[in-house]
């Protein structure tokens, strides 16, 4: 197993509020990790610290064994230039898609290769065509985001991140803003990506999806990883009382989650 990402004793505070209280995590190449937990447990913040959308208050992030930032006597210092390069290597998809509304689907997907990677126009076009085809939306290439359904927008957003050919993909509650009937198409796209061997960290409330796609499930509570293991270990036979409560609350008024194959 090749380690691609390691977090060491990661802390993050917003003012007096400590959101992450020392996270340690090693992620193998190709591993699919699902983060679950109540809102406020720190799952989103954890994702956002991995690609430095938030700067960790302390602790270290290692990418392929190389630490990000420079250790100084007063903590780790980061240079913005290094962080933009790290972000370019890690894809992120958001709850609210955040497509660029003044660009077509194709232009959205071309934007990263064009502006950040400085690819040639042909190369940008190629990458964008390929990624749109992969998410099944090549026929919507010339549509503007406003002309797409929520599910289609989210798939374009996934294609946009993939066009950067990232080493890791982060998904931050990407189906939470979707109408229920549009959730499936996005989950299927993610499942295909996982099957291709993409390293993925996913924050989601879709426990059925987590069960069928995750290699490892992490349960976060109050800024700590309280419990982790295979999907059956965490989702079916949780050991911790908090995990059991969370799962009970989560499924009390739900039909059984659909099983993806």
């Amino acid at each position: 197993m090749t380690e691609i990402l390691r977090l060491r004793n990661l802390h993050k505070s917003f003012g007096p509020l400590e959101v992450l209280k020392g996270i340690d995590l090693a992620v193998a190449q190709g591993e699919v990790i699902v983060l679950i937990g109540a809102s406020g447990s720190g799952k989103s913040t954890l994702l956002r610290c991995i690609n430095f959308m938030e700067i960790p208050t302390s602790g270290r992030v290692f990418l392929h064994g190389t630490p990000v930032g420079r250790q100084t006597s007063s903590g780790v210092s980061y240079v913005e230039r290094e962080l933009t390069q790290i972000r370019a290597r890690i894809g992120m998809v958001f709850q609210h898609f955040n497509l660029f509304p003044h660009m077509t689907a194709l232009q959205n997907v071309m934007e990263g290769p064009r502006t950040v990677l400085k690819c040639s126009p042909d190369e940008c076009r190629n990458r964008a065509d390929n990624q749109l085809r992969k998410v099944g939306l090549e026929w919507k290439a010339d549509a503007y985001p406003s002309q797409l359904s929520g599910g289609q927008q989210q798939r374009v957003a996934i294609a946009r991140a993939l066009a950067m050919e990232p080493e890791i993909m982060l998904f931050d509650e990407v189906t939470s803003a979707l109408d229920p009937e549009l959730v499936g198409e996005v989950l299927i796209t993610m499942k295909e990506l996982a099957d291709e061997g993409m390293t993925m960290l996913i924050v989601t409330h879709e426990l059925g999806f987590a069960y069928s796609v995750a290699d490892r499930v992490l349960f976060l509570a109050d800024g700590n990883v309280l419990e982790q293991g295979s999907p059956p270990e965490v989702l079916t036979y949780p050991k911790e009382e908090a995990t059991k409560n969370f799962l009970r609350g989560h499924s009390s008024f739900r039909l059984p989650e659909p099983q993806l194959d």
Partner: peptide, 17 residues
């Protein structure tokens, strides 16, 4: 919308870009 900043930042764009 701040989401536009977030999305471009996540792609690896600098603030000027």
């Amino acid at each position: 919308d701040t989401g536009q900043w977030e999305a471009s930042k996540a792609l690896g764009m600098s603030r000027n870009e």
